[in-house]
């Protein structure tokens, strides 16, 4: 059982020479096996929350804490956070020219486990995970995210989720830019990992569409850099009908 605790998290981003405050005290606790949907309008700070937890150098934490089973995540380097069991599926995955997917996956797996995976089972695991995500075998020899379509990038993120087996995953708009078929494949992937490993999920999304395929236990409305309201599945249904207007006019 793992717990990710975010307490009163405040984050600003460097722009030119001023620091812009974006997260204004976020409180959220995610346990193993739970799925928390974070829903909010564009620009509300959802990606900032994801990047700050992952340790992106562009985001400065100005207050609050993030704990993983009581350990201070903010004191860890980016790579240490991943090795501690955190995973971020990025909204815009980065191209790494000249580095093949297979080399990248093996290097990441070795880093996360602290030892190289057994070659035979590893090859089988990679092939199986790729087949489940309907990815062609030739994918392994392509360079990381280079020339990938939007859908291929998202599948590749979920492929990593399946293989690296983190304890808590943050999925930042994994649904955006996917057609219905790809959305189903990717959602099945997430559900598979949840079932097999008891993964805790922070599912960041702009739309309710993905919630048809991945059942949230909790829904949080994210507006103006903080959680404006929390509830169950029904909150998502209300958002579907009413949109975010109610929260925006309420003022920040």
């Amino acid at each position: 059982m793992t717990t990710l605790e975010i307490r009163n998290l405040q984050v600003s981003v460097e722009t030119d020479d001023t620091a812009k405050e974006i997260l204004r005290g976020v409180d959220l606790t995610i346990n193993s096996g739970e799925t928390h949907a974070i829903m909010g309008p564009n620009g509300s700070g959802k990606s900032t929350l994801a990047y700050a937890i992952a340790g992106h150098p562009k985001y400065t934490v100005t207050g609050g804490e993030v704990l993983l089973d009581g350990e201070d995540v903010l004191a860890m380097g980016v790579d240490e956070r991943a090795r501690a069991g955190l995973f971020l599926a990025m909204q815009y995955p980065v191209e790494v020219p000249g580095v093949t997917v297979s080399n990248f996956l093996r290097t990441a797996k070795t880093a996360v486990d602290g030892e190289a995976p057994k070659l035979r089972t590893w090859v089988k695991d990679v092939r199986g995970a790729m087949e489940a995500l309907r990815m062609d075998a030739s994918f392994a020899e392509r360079n990381v995210n280079e020339g990938f379509s939007g859908g291929e990038k998202k599948r590749h993120e979920i492929l990593q989720l399946e293989l690296l087996q983190p304890r808590i995953a943050i999925l930042d708009e994994t649904d955006s830019g996917l057609d219905v078929d790809a959305l189903k494949v990717v959602s099945e992937g997430v559900n598979r990992v949840k079932e097999n490993t008891g993964l805790g999920v922070m599912l960041i999304t702009h739309y309710t569409r993905i919630l048809r395929y991945i059942q949230p236990d909790y829904v949080h409305v994210f507006v103006g850099g903080r959680v404006a309201e929390s509830g169950g599945r029904d909150l998502a249904d209300r958002l579907e009908e009413e949109g975010y207007d109610r929260f925006l006019t309420a003022g920040v």
């Binding site: 980016v78 991943a82 990025m90 980065v94 020219p97 000249g98 290097t107 990441a108 690296l164």
Partner: peptide
């Protein structure tokens, strides 16, 4: 950004740099 992406998968900085630079020359 490449460095961040690789490190966010647990790869330490030295290895991440090596991957990026080797990739550049690949």
């Amino acid at each position: 950004e490449q460095l961040f992406y690789l490190m966010s998968r647990g790869i330490d900085e030295a290895n991440a740099r090596r991957l990026v630079v080797r990739g550049f020359f690949a």
